[in-house]
Amino acid sequence: MDSIFTENLSKRMYLDLKQLEQKVNDKVLKAALMRRGAESIRRTLKLREITPHFLALYQQGSIGDELFKNFEIHSRLQEEELKEVAMEAESIQQGWATTFFPIVQEICFNEALRRRLNVLDDRGVELNKLWNGLHATATATAAEL
């Protein structure tokens, strides 16, 4: 079955760190779990965002049963991922899961905001180049007249 999302690198990195033979610093392990949690939150929010659209397409017959079941499976897997992240947070520090999720949700939102700002910055640079090109062309045309 094809995955809706690309590989979860944050999860793989956390599991790799956890399985290392030598002891990993607790702060590094916590940071890796927070990255994993932020990615899990992002994926969960994305699934919740597209669920109504997926349901509408399925009800209209625009997508088949197989694709819809694939979507449902991925939604359940993502719920299990969140539970697993919560258990990992509790195993690192008792009671941490209650403060863990608000922190990783904030990380997730900050990353989304940073991505949007970077897109705007890139668009500004492109528009500036376009404006300078148009201005140079207009100046050259005016000089010829």
Rank of each mutant, 00 (worst) to 15 (best):
N132M: 05
R115W: 03
M13N: 15
L45P: 00
D65P: 00
A138G: 01
E90C: 01
Q105W: 03
I41F: 06
S3W: 05
D26C: 04
N132H: 04
R12E: 14
I41G: 00
E144W: 08
E49S: 04
L117T: 13
K83N: 13
A142I: 14
L17R: 05
K11A: 13
S75E: 12
D122S: 13
F101Y: 06
V104K: 03
A112H: 06
E7A: 10
N118K: 04
Q94M: 06
A136E: 13
K69E: 15
E21A: 10
A89Q: 11
H53F: 12
E7L: 05
A32P: 09
L145E: 10
N8C: 11
T99P: 01
S62F: 11
E90S: 07
E126W: 02
I103W: 05
I103N: 04
V104Q: 01
I41Q: 06
A32W: 04
E81A: 11
D122P: 00
L130V: 05
R76Q: 13
L20M: 15
R76C: 04
F71Y: 12
L29K: 01
T137S: 10
K23V: 15
I107H: 02
L33I: 12
V125L: 13
P102R: 01
K11F: 03
L145I: 11
K23G: 02
R76V: 14
N110I: 15
R123Y: 00
D16S: 14
R12K: 13
M34D: 02
S91A: 15
K27H: 03
D16R: 15
L29C: 03
L145W: 13
P52V: 05
S75F: 07
E81K: 02
R48M: 10
E144V: 05
Q105M: 09
E88F: 03
R36T: 10
A138K: 03
L33Q: 10
I4M: 10
G124F: 06
W96L: 15
H135W: 03
Q22L: 11
